[in-house]
């Protein structure tokens, strides 16, 4: 009588080993299962349609805007101040709208490509988390403009935008969080520098950093492998 094999523990072990062997062929399935779960967890908290290309083009918009502003302010001395102010307002609005449209367009295209809804619950959360600090912060800027503290505009917009991006990065990638931190840092530096350096830092923050951010995101998530 083979007591060894009748040992309940032994039988249990054999049965389990059998299952394990059977499972060997389905290890691939398990890998797929784990991969699906990670994907679901990622999709639950990340707005995947936010496109790196949108970031790059938004950065280009900012650079173009900053160059025009720099030229009008420091090289083109024939414009009367009242006209200059109007031109700068229009320029600022155009830059903002242009960048916004770029990000929206490329994110919309990306959502179509990934076949995910553009206006999803995660997108809504992302926008709320960016918009709230942005709107609250813009009141500081409005107050500053009202008090004719024009020098406040550039550093404050960098810091406020940095905070907004940092908040929103909860529903986006790590890159967005770093972008937020860098913008805040540049804003803090810009406070202590003269206005022309402020414009330069603004161009670096909104232009160059967006292009860098967009390239990283594109390279990491969107590039065809």
């Amino acid at each position: 009588m083979n007591t060894k094999n009748n040992n309940p523990k032994r039988i249990e072990k054999n049965r389990e080993e059998g299952e394990v062997l059977e499972n060997n062929s389905t290890t691939f399935e398990k890998i797929q299962e784990l991969r699906d779960i990670l994907k679901i967890m990622e999709r639950s908290v990340t707005c995947v349609s936010l496109s790196g290309l949108g970031g790059i083009f938004a950065g280009v918009c900012a650079l173009v805007g900053a160059s025009f502003a720099g030229y009008w302010l420091y090289f083109d001395n024939n414009v009367p101040p009242a006209v200059l102010q109007h031109k700068l307002w229009l320029l600022a609005a155009a830059t903002f709208v242009g960048a916004f449209l770029c990000v929206s367009l490329f994110s919309y295209l990306r959502s179509k490509k990934l076949q995910v809804p553009f206006w999803s619950s995660v997108t809504r959360r992302l926008i709320t988390h960016i918009a709230l600090p942005f709107i609250a912060g813009s009141f500081i800027i409005l107050w500053g403009l009202n008090q004719q503290l024009y020098i406040l505009l550039l550093p404050a917009s960098l810091i406020i935008y940095g905070i907004a991006v940092f908040c929103g990065s909860r529903y986006s990638t790590d890159e967005a969080r770093y972008l937020g931190m860098v913008e805040m840092f540049l804003g803090c530096v810009a406070i202590w520098l003269p206005a022309c350096c402020g414009l330069l830092l603004w161009a670096v923050g909104f232009g160059v950093m967006h292009i860098v951010y967009g390239s990283f995101v594109w390279y990491r998530y969107e590039r065809k492998k």
């Binding site: 994907k39 679901i40 999709r43 076949q115 999803s120």
Partner: peptide
Amino acid sequence: GVLSARESVSFNELKEILLHTD
């Protein structure tokens, strides 16, 4: 998976996320 990543999720959000991952 969804609930582990988010504090609380409504039925519709749950459906939306699962539907579009799958």
